[in-house]
Design a binder for these strands. Structure first.
Length: 440
RNA sequence: GCCCUGGUAGUAUAGUCCGGCCUAGUAUAAGCGGCUGUCGCCCGCUAGACCCGGGUUCAAAUCCCGGCCAGGGCGCCA
């Protein structure tokens, strides 16, 4: 045996979940972390966790050698170990199988007491949990959220790719505001001031000239002082843009995508959903389409008065969410409350071809047909008190055959909330950034 | 930018309204000891806290003021 091999005698042969009762008698090496310890005196049970699951390590104290016993006795929660041992079929053990250790290598120890209870018997506050996020994520229900998030992203990429979209990445350091407004984070870019991108909007629109159908999944930054369970200052936006498409075309893509994502999560994340005690329903298509006018009338009947042309306040959305559970679109928004790039309707310019996709009372996506006529775009910029000169590079694209196009953006973390049942958006991000949190 | 609520051991809480019975209770985690089939194991023991500063009062965890920190909501948005 070479020195190198000797040093690697901790290397695993199996994951915990690969160990089955019919491997009785086989010698295996497992690596992971000590999740629980139950010492009954003459016998000690250790629960080993790895990325796949858990397995019981049973230490009958008069049957293991002195050194192994010494190591077993010193173990504490969250210690990192490699355990060589023999598989034993045992009906009384979880999953009918356990490991009798022959050798325990302590790869690293954990400082006690831990800053939060990893068993979940005494649940910690979100603030304490996020301060010790790595430890917090050792809990199955917290990791399950990110297993599902992974499947969501996989499903989105799969769906969009199969539908002819190409994944792009646009700059996150930008020279000026993409949509106006003051809610950008300034950064020093050498001797100049720059900003963190609040949206890939302008870039993705320009790129439809070259690629026709593009999508981006990437970080976006909003310097909004929101302090709610559904806002972050850094979140992941799923953006699409398609040439020769209208709002209705991209709404169909959105509902088909949502349905596909729900299906994949239901199919692939059965265990994780069980861990989270949450049920995902695959929505029926097509989703309801409510016009802005219908919405304000419904709200009027419910006792909430909204003047035509006003935006819909949160309280009204909560009421609307009760009237229309699950997914629905709101269409035909007044042009005046939509961003400058949203196309006004040809027949009624006071209405726009913008839409929002709602889930209960939460806005999940917004999008619409875009203006592809340069003069109209400049007119709309001026109407929203934006300076066309600041948009020079964007407007330039409209000189080179900008096709009619449409697109939308979905907030990934809100989608994760929907498909995991977590009630705080911070639970849907590994290391969330909000108005007050910049660490870890 | 505005509004509301809170801060008690490593964690989570009781006590705060109506100051004295708090020498601050409980659970869990931690340390020590015991227990051979646990699976939120069990039992005993030990140690551990009133966010900071000021004020009121005979007396403050409790009331008041300021600060810091945290949670939630509004507006805005995904």
């Amino acid at each position: 045996m070479t020195q190198r091999m000797k040093n690697e005698n901790w290397k695993r042969t199996h994951y915990t979940m690969e160990i089955t009762p019919n491997m009785d008698g086989e010698e295996v090496v497992l690596t992971g972390w000590i999740k629980e310890i139950r010492d009954l005196g003459g016998i000690k049970f250790l629960i080993l966790r790895d990325k796949e699951g858990t397995l019981q390590i049973t230490v009958p104290k008069d049957e293991v050698d002195e050194l192994t016993l010494k190591h077993a006795e010193s173990l504490q929660r969250q210690d990192c170990v490699s355990i060589r041992g023999v598989v034993k079929r045992m009906d009384k053990a979880p999953r009918g199988v356990e490991i009798i250790p022959k050798n325990i290598i302590i790869l690293n120890t954990a400082k006690q007491p831990l800053p939060l209870d990893i068993t979940g018997k005494t649940p910690a506050d979100i603030d304490v949990r996020l301060d010790a996020r790595v430890l917090d994520l050792t809990r199955d229900e917290n990791r399950a959220v990110f297993q599902i998030r992974h499947v969501i992203l996989e499903a989105i990429r799969d769906f969009l790719s199969k539908n002819g979209f190409i994944e792009i990445h646009t700059p996150k350091i930008i020279a000026s505001a993409t949509e106006g407004g003051a809610n950008l984070f300034p950064v020093m870019y050498f001797e100049r001031e720059a900003f963190l991108a609040q949206s890939p909007q302008l870039y993705k629109e320009q790129l439809v000239i070259d690629f026709e159908k593009v999508y981006e999944i990437g970080p976006t930054f909003r310097a909004e002082k929101s302090h709610t369970r559904r806002h972050l200052t850094e979140f992941t936006s799923i953006d699409i843009e398609a040439a020769f498409a209208t709002a209705e075309d991209v709404m169909e893509i959105a509902e088909r995508l949502i349905q596909h994502v729900c299906k994949m999560v239901v199919e692939k994340c059965c265990e994780d959903l069980k861990t989270l005690k949450y049920k995902v329903e695959v929505p029926e298509m097509p989703f309801k389409r409510l016009t802005y006018d219908e919405v304000i009338n419904e709200l009027k009947d419910a006792g909430i008065k909204i003047n035509w042309g006003e935006d819909i306040p949160t309280i009204a959305y909560r009421t609307l969410g009760r009237l229309h559970p699950y997914f629905y679109f709101i269409i035909d928004w007044p042009t005046s409350i939509k961003p400058f790039y949203i196309k006004p309707r040809d027949d009624k310019p006071e209405l726009s071809e913008g839409f929002d996709l709602m889930w209960h009372w939460i806005e999940v996506a917004s999008g619409g047909t875009r203006i592809h006529d340069k003069d109209l775009l400049i007119k709309r910029l001026r109407e929203q008190n934006l300076n066309p000169e600041s948009f020079r590079f964007h407007l330039q694209a409209f000189d080179y055959g900008m096709p009619p196009h449409a697109g939308w953006a979905i907030g990934l973390e809100r989608l994760v909330m929907m498909l995991t049942g977590v009630r705080n958006i911070r639970e849907a991000v590994l290391f969330p950034r909000d108005r007050f949190r910049l660490t870890p």
